[in-house]
Nucleic acid binder design. Structure first.
Length: 664
DNA sequence: TTAGGGTTAG
């Protein structure tokens, strides 16, 4: 039985009052019935028949192509138009269907025309309830929430479906707070609700992180034996995952009786959003073993996980699967593909993607910028403007990043002005951060410092950290010390900041200060976040931690490292012992550095990939400076191109140098 | 005849 055919369940609190009488004095007002004349009625029946037959034919046509259950909303609208042209009078049964078609296509203009006919013919109806519910949903689907609400507020009777239509309308337009607000109102006045209502509300709970209401619904679901409703369970899985309770989500997912593509997609997305990307890919494999066909929505989460892990081969397989199965390259999927290729260091393949909207363009601009192709990124920004696509705030983060990676100070300044002047975008802290980087990266430390002091919003730790990083490169101790003070005040336990200043001291020969700072870190109990490096081989992502011996091939890897370090030392590599673990004994410092996660991953890559092939590694933190200088030499000695993506950018190592020009 | 689950860029 369909859920909407089930009797409406009552709202949860048992002591809740029955629903008050509808505003306007109660029951439905008597309406004048006006049936169409017999001849017209016959034509109306023929059209209904034609509509049904055509829908069925279209449905079969899609089915052949691998689509199921897909109606043809375009035909529905066309037939409605023909009805009107043939002077066939639509009735209360005709409108909901055509309005649903308008909702599906988000066809506002057509929807409004239908509404005009509703107004014209309203006195011929037995009841307007279904039509008004459909109007509410049509306007909301077309993003016209105010109009939807006007229809809703003007209804003489509001059933659970009317409320649910309005709530789902809010959800469709990402107005989560309003959706939850309306649900609470429903509870307050005792309208009751059903499973469909809960599904919409759970979506809103997930987006708002409203675990309290989400859990209340979960309890209701369990107490009322609704756990067999798989759609409702999927919504619960999604809600728990979005509220950060991924393991609870997994427990619910595991007890579901049947799992369709939506349930699998929800769980995979849950892992992906929680940065548990290896689990996301593992679950994707389980999904394939369970013979559930993924769709374009599944692929968005799978590709996002591949992007985070730098899993190029798996992502490439996904891309060819998309082509093979003719999955629709939606804007979401296209954007995710652009982002995936860019994040795997293959930005040229990202360019091949059809750029469609501001998201896709932004992903491309960002990708080019982080891969060190700033000027090209700006060319694409101009191309985007030529195609009349307006940039948004995130686009400008990409544009400003492109300027700082390419050392384009004047351009950076002018884009910052253009953002406000030409597009009315108020700069956020991230935009100010980009500007500090624009100045700092070319050595304009004083200017960057002045810029921070004149910011209209309070600088955060990221801003000061950006300045500190520039001070390290340009050896500006005075402003560097000042920057660290601010950083520590704002975020007292961030190990990387101490390391930046300590390296700055070391680089100008103030070794005592460097050691003092490191000891201070030790005394304050500030520990370094564990750094992970990932490398993908034959579709399997291997993960390494510093001084890790958990890998099954660990003995071979350590042997390869020994060989690698010996060879690069001959070529001029000098280990930077300041990068060693703080608590490491003096004699162990060199070994500690040589067992950093990046080096383990590179050594593994050297022994497991064919000579001359590119080694691709991803790291969750910034690459350490010792690994950076070692990798430059490794690329030369072993004739390998090595691409390392760290948390902020790409490093393409080739012939002894790096694309970042030693600034990152 | 009307309402219901999963997706993207810093």
């Amino acid at each position: 039985m369909q859920d909407h055919q089930r009797p409406q369940t009552s709202s949860c609190p048992p002591d809740q009052n029955p629903p008050p009488p509808p505003p306007g004095g109660g029951g439905a007002s008597p309406r004048i019935s006006c049936p169409p004349p017999p001849r017209l009625r016959h034509r109306l029946c023929s059209l209904h028949f034609l509509q049904t037959r055509k829908s069925r034919l279209v449905s079969l046509h899609y089915h052949d192509k691998g689509f199921t259950k897909l109606q043809s909303p375009e035909k529905s609208i066309l037939l409605f138009r023909q009805m009107i042209e043939h002077s066939v009078r639509p009735d209360e049964f005709t409108f909901p269907g055509v309005l649903k078609a308008c909702s599906k296509l988000r066809a506002l203009k057509e929807g409004e025309q239908v509404h005009a006919h509703v107004v014209k013919l309203i006195y011929g109806f037995g009841s307007t309830e279904f039509v008004e519910n459909s109007l509410v949903y049509m306007y909301a689907s077309c993003g016209r929430l105010k109009l939807a609400r006007q229809v809703f507020d003007g209804m003489s009777e509001r059933s659970v479906i009317a409320w649910s239509s309005m709530i789902s309308g809010y959800v469709r337009c990402s107005h989560w707070q309003e959706a939850v607000g309306l649900f609470r109102k429903m509870l307050q006045i005792g309208v009751g609700f059903n499973e469909a209502t809960l599904i919409s509300v759970l979506t809103a709970c997930g987006r708002l992180g409203d675990l309290e209401l989400g859990e209340w619904i979960y309890k209701y679901v369990v107490e009322n034996g609704l756990v067999r409703n798989d759609s409702l369970m999927t919504s619960l899985v999604d809600m728990y995952a979005k509220c950060g309770r991924v393991d609870t989500a997994r427990d619910l997912f595991d007890i579901m009786s049947t799992r369709d593509v939506v349930a699998w997609s929800a769980m995979i997305s849950g892992y992906s959003r929680s940065n548990r990307c290896k689990e996301a890919l593992a679950l994707f494999r389980d999904m394939q073993n369970a013979n559930v066909e993924p769709n374009e929505v599944t692929m968005v989460s799978v590709l996002s996980s591949c992007a985070v892990l730098g899993a190029l081969q798996t992502g490439e397989w996904v891309h060819s699967y998309i082509k093979k199965k003719n999955l629709k390259l939606t804007i979401n999927l296209g954007t995710t593909l652009v982002d995936f290729y860019a994040k795997c260091g293959c930005v040229d393949r990202a360019i091949e993607m059809p750029s469609k909207n501001v998201w896709t363009w932004t992903a491309l601009i960002q990708g080019l910028a982080s891969n060190g192709q700033g000027k090209k990124a700006l060319r694409y920004y101009n191309l985007m403007l030529q195609e009349n696509v307006d940039p948004n705030d995130v686009t400008f983060i990409g544009v400003l990043c492109a300027c700082n990676h390419a050392g384009l100070v004047d351009e950076g300044r002018s884009y910052f002005v253009s953002m406000i002047r030409d597009f009315g975008i108020e700069p956020r802290i991230e935009h100010y951060g980009c500007m500090v980087d624009v100045f700092g990266r070319v050595g304009l430390i004083e200017e960057a410092y002045e810029f921070i002091k004149n910011m209209p919003i309070k600088p955060n730790a990221v801003i000061w950290r950006t300045l500190l990083a520039s001070c390290r490169v340009y050896r500006n101790v005075e402003i560097g010390e000042e920057a660290l003070k601010h950083v520590v005040r704002l975020e007292p336990v961030h190990s990387g900041d101490y390391i930046l200043l300590s390296n700055l001291y070391a680089s100008i020969g103030r070794l005592e200060d460097a050691t003092k700072l490191r000891n201070e870190m030790k005394m304050l109990g500030i520990k370094k976040n564990p750094g992970y490096s990932y490398i993908e081989l034959d579709g399997i992502v291997h993960e390494f931690l510093a001084e890790d011996s958990g890998h099954p091939q660990s003995p071979e890897i350590y042997k390869a490292i020994e060989n690698m370090m010996e060879k690069i030392k001959v070529a001029g590599y000098v280990p930077d012992k300041l990068q060693a673990r703080l608590e490491a004994e003096e004699d162990d410092k060199e070994a500690s550095i040589s067992h950093h996660s990046e080096k383990l991953a590179i050594a593994f890559g050297l022994i497991r990939t064919s000579p001359g092939s590119t080694i691709r590694i991803s790291k969750n933190l910034r690459i350490c400076s010792d690994c950076h200088s070692a990798t430059k030499i490794i690329s030369k000695v072993f004739s390998r191109e090595i691409v390392i993506r760290d948390r902020s950018r790409f490093h393409h190592f080739k012939d002894g140098s790096c694309s970042c020009n030693d600034f990152w």
